Simulated assay, not measured.
Amino acid sequence: MNNTLFPMSQHYFTSMASANTHRIAYTHWGDPTNPKVLICVHGLTRNSRDFDSLAATLASHYRVICPDMVGRGQSDWLSHPEQYTAEVYLADMLALLKHLNLSQVDWLGTSMGGLIGMILAAQPQPLIRRLILNDIGPFIPKEGLIPLVQRLTQSPPQFMALSEAEQFFRLVHSQFGPLTDSQWQHLTQHGTQLHEDGYYCLAYDPKIAHTFQSAADSDMDLWSTWKMIRCPVLLLHGEQSIFLSRTTIAQMQKTHPQLKVVTFPGIGHAPALMAEEQINLIQEWLLTVNR
């Protein structure tokens, strides 16, 4: 398939998943008539453009849809911070599938996006045929959540130049793995927004931290959800991850015979999925694994 015939495009739809309707943005890659659809959902503070390299490659075989979760990227911010909940995120994704008239898809989720994917895959009539989890599982120890919550509840940084923002991203997201200068620039460009006062800020609503302020008090346990998943699963693991331990992976393997695990050495939470090796691995699994 010639991808130049179907370049990346930006789209929007209106979701009514909370008390206030809000607009959700998403990027679209590939042939819009292709019945093979992959949904890619980013992590807590990230956005859809994290998947540009992956989507550009997979668009030869898939129609790839990458949404900005509410409060991130080009999607609306919610007026009430208490509405940034898993229930709203899940409802937004169900609304996206309805908007696109999709009854079954493949799903790739990084961190938060993977948690949403697990919940959807565990439904009695699952919407997900194949699931890719990027450095996330059904158990997150509170020791992993504490530094995340601490960072989210700090005063949002401001940058007078994109070069300053890039240094921030290189530090905060150093666990993404070894990226090229152009890849860091890409993450910075799409991970920031120009404020009306002339400085650059992060491309997410700082209030997304509201519902996480109590999350670090206890472990996050979704084992009951994991046990309901029947579709094939590819688990991508950052060797140095504080979110996904080898103990959790071993337990996941015991309860899910169709689980394939790939560990990336020297990487933490979470692999950026921008390296050619990572992209090729994902593509091969999607094209060869049984449905």
Rank of each mutant, 00 (worst) to 15 (best):
S48G: 10
K142L: 08
L97G: 01
D76Q: 05
C201E: 12
T14R: 05
L145A: 07
Y200H: 14
L97Q: 04
P232T: 10
Q185W: 12
T33Y: 05
T180K: 07
V41P: 04
T21E: 11
Q175E: 15
P67C: 03
H269S: 06
A215D: 06
K36F: 09
L94V: 11
T288M: 00
A17I: 12
L244C: 07
G177N: 06
D106G: 07
R63C: 13
T27Q: 02
V261A: 01
K260C: 04
L287K: 01
C40A: 14
E277A: 14
A56R: 09
T33P: 00
A17Y: 09
R72F: 05
I119L: 10
P7R: 04
M8F: 01
V172C: 00
W77E: 00
H42Q: 12
S182Q: 15
S79H: 01
V149H: 02
V41A: 07
T45C: 06
R46T: 07
L100V: 05
Y84D: 04
L202E: 08
Q251M: 12
I242T: 13
W223K: 10
G144L: 13
H256W: 09
M93F: 10
M16G: 12
L236Q: 08
A272C: 11
L235P: 06
H28N: 02
M228V: 05
E143Q: 14
M8Y: 00
T21R: 03
L273N: 06
N101S: 12
I65M: 03
G113N: 09
N280R: 13
Q251D: 06
Y62E: 05
G113K: 06
D68I: 10
Q104E: 11
L44K: 00
S245K: 08
F159Q: 05
R23S: 10
P257C: 10
T57L: 14
K98F: 05
H269V: 13
Q193R: 14
L133Y: 06
K142G: 01
T85G: 05
Q125N: 15
G30D: 11
A95R: 04
I242L: 12
G43V: 11
Q123I: 10
N47T: 13
P35V: 02
Q193E: 13
E82V: 08
Q213M: 15
K260L: 09
P232V: 12
H42N: 11
L148Q: 12
K227C: 09
L194Y: 01
L281V: 05
